[in-house]
Amino acid sequence: MRRILVSALLLIAVIATACAPATVAPAAQPAVTSTAVPAAAPTSATAPQGNSELPEVNPLEVKGDIIAAGSSTVFPLSERMAVRFKDEGYSGNITIDSIGSGAGLERFCKAGETDIANASRAIKSSEVESCQFIGREPVEIRVGTDALAVVVSKQNTFVQSVTREQLAKLFSDAATKWSDVDPSWPNENILRFIPGTDSGTFDYFVEDILGKDKARALSAANQQLSEDDNVLVQGVLGSPYAIGYFGYAYYAENADKLNALSIEGVAPTAETVDQGTYPLARPLFMYTTAKILQEKPQVAAFVSFYLAHVNEEITAVGYFPASEADLSAARQAVLAALSN
């Protein structure tokens, strides 16, 4: 008996400690940092020249820290560029906080404590005003495009294309069965798999399709939410009556098992996203100011490096390259900021 008691108590302790880490684990806040000491050779990295192309950057010669914060969608891309910047010799610290576009712009425009704000939407006029209020004139730098894919399993044979209205019904409390959305669809429950409420993808979808009405999105029946896109992929694969949405990258990885639906007759492809005809595509931006670019050569160097090499990395992250016109406009903007 005593042995049982002892082992019972031991188990209690084990359970208590096993439960604990999960409950006290802080919300993840990924950041890229390094503790490397800045190298010598303090020379200004970017000297603006007369031509329209940004000067070549030598990361070895850049020192000083860079602080960026914002969109969780831009984060993987910026992180990748930061890692490459470091690999090529940059020895300072780059901190990138993944806190969402709105929070990132708030830190940039209100607190004025970051050098770069990452955003998966264009800056709002109210945000520009608060930026100007603290003497910051934001410079917009387009870095790429993200597209949302609405997917069903390949076993699903009844739906290839949906309208925006149908999407709104498919992902809200307005419909429970497929036949509620379109009478020609089967009388089966819609099994929904959507990104979690902390994700920018969820925010974007709710804003674009459901008129910012989170309650409608979250009251839908038979709905699974996960920050882990693989959970969503698994879920959609599980039934012909399942539907989900997530970043195009995850669809691309599973294109052999999943079908991406056309929205308003437009399928998500590199061309339709590039032309801006696919409705669920959104631009990815970085914001900084002319003053920061001039005063902090490391930020100017990072931005120039970013714009020079972003197209070599962006497809690996799962996004679409911005059009050449947008990219060169961004280069022009940086160049102009540096030269005045």
Binding site: A27, S72, I99, D198
Partner: peptide, 9 residues
């Protein structure tokens, strides 16, 4: 699931 996302404190 919730503590895995970017939840603010």
């Amino acid at each position: 699931r919730i503590s895995g996302g970017d939840l603010s404190y």
